[in-house]
């Protein structure tokens, strides 16, 4: 459509007068992320068997796992969100949530030299965990079924 005044933006400008703004007021209005979007790694400490496969496959070396100490740690600032660890985890202890990565600041570096983005889990001792599981199982047997 060509208009005689050579103002090709005019129709668009008129439409913009009566339409919603194309942008959002960001901190107050956040666009929900799509299903399957890669965001933050979530770890389930109860199911992990500390096989260290995720740490071996992580291309950014963001994950450290210790089988002896039963600790699992991730540096969220090093993580590139490639989803490889989630795919290799045989126990399905890792999941990718769609929630966007948290913004870390220097204020998080405390007097003890805490690392921003560092998250660490300590698994229960296997013997204690087994005893707890056994106790729970007995409890469920003893409990009257309703």
């Amino acid at each position: 459509m060509s208009n005689p005044f050579r103002l090709p933006m005019a129709p668009r400008a008129i439409r913009n007068l009566f339409s919603k703004p194309a942008t959002r007021r960001y901190p107050y209005e956040i666009r929900p992320r799509f299903d399957g979007a890669r965001g933050t790694i979530k770890f389930d400490v109860d199911t992990c068997n500390y096989c260290t496969l995720c740490a071996k496959r992580c291309p950014a070396a963001a994950i450290t796992v210790s089988r002896e100490d039963r600790t699992w740690a991730i540096e969220h600032l090093t993580c590139i969100g490639c989803n490889v660890c989630v795919e290799v985890c045989a126990k399905k202890s890792l999941a990718m949530s769609t929630e966007a990565k948290h913004v870390h600041t220097h204020a998080e570096v405390g007097p003890q030299g805490q690392r921003p983005g560092h998250e660490e889990w300590h698994g229960a001792d296997p013997a204690i965990a087994a005893a707890a599981a056994k106790a729970a199982a007995e409890l469920s047997i003893d409990a009257p079924s309703s």
């Binding site: 799509f34 299903d35 979007a37 890669r38 590139i80 969100g81 490639c82």
Partner: peptide, 12 residues
């Protein structure tokens, strides 16, 4: 892109 690959810029 975000819907189909999971990332807007880095698709992996």
């Amino acid at each position: 892109f975000e819907k189909t690959t999971g990332g807007r810029i880095i698709h992996s």
